[in-house]
Write a protein that binds this DNA or RNA. Structure first.
Lengths: 238, 238
DNA sequence: GCCTGTTGTTGATCAAAATCAACGTCGCGT
DNA sequence: ACGCGACGTTGATTTTGATCAACAACAGGC
């Protein structure tokens, strides 16, 4: 689905997305630029090294950002959830592929219009900057994981991360989300953690056998003790 | 050495650093805020999770950004060269340790003063944004390396990257720098590539034996064929 | 229902890199 | 010159995770 006009007033991510930087009259302007898109899993949103004609806020769903080597080896370099912003402002080409992992609702903006708006309203550019800083933090945190953590620590870290993101996406006031659905397949988790499918699967059963998690039908995870899992993910004792 | 006043006019990185966003009168303001620092190898510039009281431009030398696990495992999450900017604007705490790798000349600015300036002169904030986007690109490129490349590909990638950065730091008009000094020890290279010292050493001798590089006294590398090395780093054929 | 393709698990074996260990080299202080 | 410590290389062995292979669970099409 493409091109449907959006009402920012009723937007689910109005106060968490980059749009939160805008005041009433500014939002009106943005409103006129916004178009909704609904994408199925697997839909390609941006392609590495190619120009993208639009930016987007994720209204709902999960998007993976990937990079590949010539022979097909793939690495997920970012996971984006509801309220996250897609696209590299002020860059001609996308530095990665972006692909819908679940059904994804996007609110898209034509590149030039949006960059013009960002130049006009400094708060909007500042908000984009903040989002980029968050992405950088996440990337560097993940570098530590990819370079130095064991398979078990990687899988535990992944679960902790997903639980945290699911929490902020949902509307859970306090405490941890302990039961959640994984947005990624085993193959995608492997591409995220720099492992193989088989190793990911084995670490899941290990965590299950050790009583740290329960698994319901491959995609649903119940974390018994989030702090314990976090300890495993950082190799505190154990 | 701390606190010496700097003259921006004669600054070696005046036109490549974030300062290039500023015009004559603005630079004058910045001039009044700048203090020089000369740090020896090993000097700690920022500490993970701690507040830093200043930002800095690197005038010369190399700075490593590291993150560690509780048990001492370490990962270099960024390497910064001359003209690069140090410090996370609009963030309370540093997300990594920053440490001088060589002798390092810094041009430092007090945090609050500098952020105020960035708010006033939008071009400066924009330039900081651009630098952050570059850092993010580098981080995600490195995630692909850490997650999916073999030891040989990692070391080749490292050499290609250092050659490129050395080139932009020096004043080489065109063509590749093929002979350069490594700024990092074997241990630091290992921490950058997610390998052990021994594996790094073995891959160096392998690249040497295969005739791709020559090594002079451990720290100086001569690349025979940069394109061939780049191919190895991305696993094109062979 | 049944067939088929996709996804996930488990086991056996293999290989790449880690670990353990010894030794060489260089620079520095005395 | 000598000895020491840091750094780097090389070899032997072990370990972790990859690869190869078989099969189970499940969903969708007909």
């Amino acid at each position: 689905m493409v091109g449907q006009i959006i009402r920012c007033d009723s937007c689910a991510v109005r106060h968490r997305s980059v749009c939160s930087a805008l005041t009433r009259p500014e939002i009106e302007r943005l409103n006129g630029m916004a178009h909704a898109k609904l994408l199925p899993p697997g839909a390609v949103i941006m392609r590495d090294n190619e120009k993208s004609s639009y930016f987007a806020n994720i209204i709902s769903g999960v998007v993976k950002l990937t990079k590949s080597l010539g022979d097909g080896r793939q690495q997920i370099v970012g996971l984006q959830f509801a309220s996250d912003f897609l696209g590299r402002p002020f860059r001609a080409n996308s530095p990665y592929n972006a692909e819908a992992v679940t059904d994804v609702h996007l609110c898209t903006f034509e590149t030039q219009q949006f960059e013009k708006l960002a130049k006009e309203f400094q708060d909007l550019e500042h908000r984009l900057f903040e989002h980029t800083l968050d992405e950088l933090d996440a990337a560097q945190e993940w570098m530590l994981l990819l370079g130095r953590k064991s398979a078990e620590e990687k899988v535990a870290s992944f679960l902790v991360m997903v639980a945290r993101r699911m929490q902020s996406v949902g509307c859970h006031a306090a405490g941890h989300v302990t039961r959640f659905e994984l947005p990624l397949s085993r193959a995608e988790i492997a591409d995220f953690l720099g492992l193989t499918i088989e190793t990911v699967s084995r670490q899941f059963t290990r965590l299950k056998n050790d009583g740290h998690i329960a698994i319901e039908g491959a995609r649903t995870v119940v974390v018994q003790d989030m702090d314990r899992l976090r300890n495993i993910s950082e190799s505190v004792d154990g």
